[in-house]
């Protein structure tokens, strides 16, 4: 029975399992993309921080115009900075996920060989320890 179960599993693993693993991997990238709101932050990248904006007073006042301009530039810069932090974090998380996912994918593809290899290596090592 055991060999039948093993071969059954192998059949599932290569016919269905690998594609399910790829889908799960894709889902995790999708999740990180949305979790760090990368698209939203990218779209509003140059907008002021929390929409905070100074308004120009009535009339022509150079000092006021300059003040408003500087303040709004600063607010936009702060907005960009904060968004950048989230975007960088998001990109970093995606890279980590890609790395871990790749390892797991390779492990899954090579699973039978890897398993056999690990079992053999384990036996060799155990023999070595006790000899």
């Amino acid at each position: 029975m055991a060999p039948a179960v093993f071969f059954d599993f192998l059949r599932w693993h290569y016919l269905v399992g690998i594609s399910k693993l790829l889908k799960a991997w894709g889902n995790l990238h999708w999740f990180l993309y949305h979790y760090f709101s990368i698209d939203t932050l990218a779209k509003s990248f140059f907008e002021p921080f929390h929409r905070m904006q100074e308004r120009k007073r009535r009339g022509f006042d150079v000092e006021d115009i300059a003040g408003v301009l500087i303040m709004n530039t600063v607010l936009r810069f702060i907005g960009m900075l904060v968004r950048s932090v989230f975007i960088i974090l998001g990109v970093f998380a995606q890279i980590v996920m890609f790395g871990v996912g790749s390892l797991l994918f390779i492990a899954a593809v090579l699973a039978p060989a890897l398993l056999v290899g690990l079992v053999v290596a384990s036996i060799v090592q155990v023999v070595k320890i006790f000899s």
Binding site: Y35, F36, T40, G79, R83
Partner: peptide, 8 residues
Amino acid sequence: GLGKDLGF
């Protein structure tokens, strides 16, 4: 998610 309200 994180940072969703940054644009508001």
